[in-house]
Amino acid sequence: MQPTSLEFAVQPTSGVPIYRQLIDQVRALVASGRLKPGDRLPSVRQMAADLQVNMMTVSKAYAKLESDGVLERERGLGMRVPVGALDAGAATTMVPVVERQQELRPFAEELATRAWQLKLTDDQALAVVRSVLKGRKS
């Protein structure tokens, strides 16, 4: 997959700094194998323009991901997932489902609280989740 900025969503009004949000999302894409070795990320300029955030914010996220070895800098071409990296998409190296589910948990907790406040049944809440997931695929 050659990701575009559409694969990312940041919440500027969240308490989590925007650069951290980007780091978390790139890590998730790599850990799950959605991004494969050699896949290139949008340029700093492109990402900043599309997400309407400061370029320094994007540079900072990329620099941290580079120093952590999640991404590598290709001279003149930008950032990509290291070619030497193990392909997380290959079943043997993929981060286990349980761990990836763990990552999703805080969002589910937030959802559960709001569903309770709205007095929605489990099925009613899950129907919303299903419809959102379906919307993403199409």
């Binding site: 300029r45 900043a48 323009a49 309407q52 370029m55």
Partner: peptide, 13 residues
């Protein structure tokens, strides 16, 4: 406001 922010971001690029 959003247009203004875009322009400001463009300037900063």
């Amino acid at each position: 406001r959003r247009e203004f922010l875009s322009s400001l971001l463009e300037l900063c690029q």
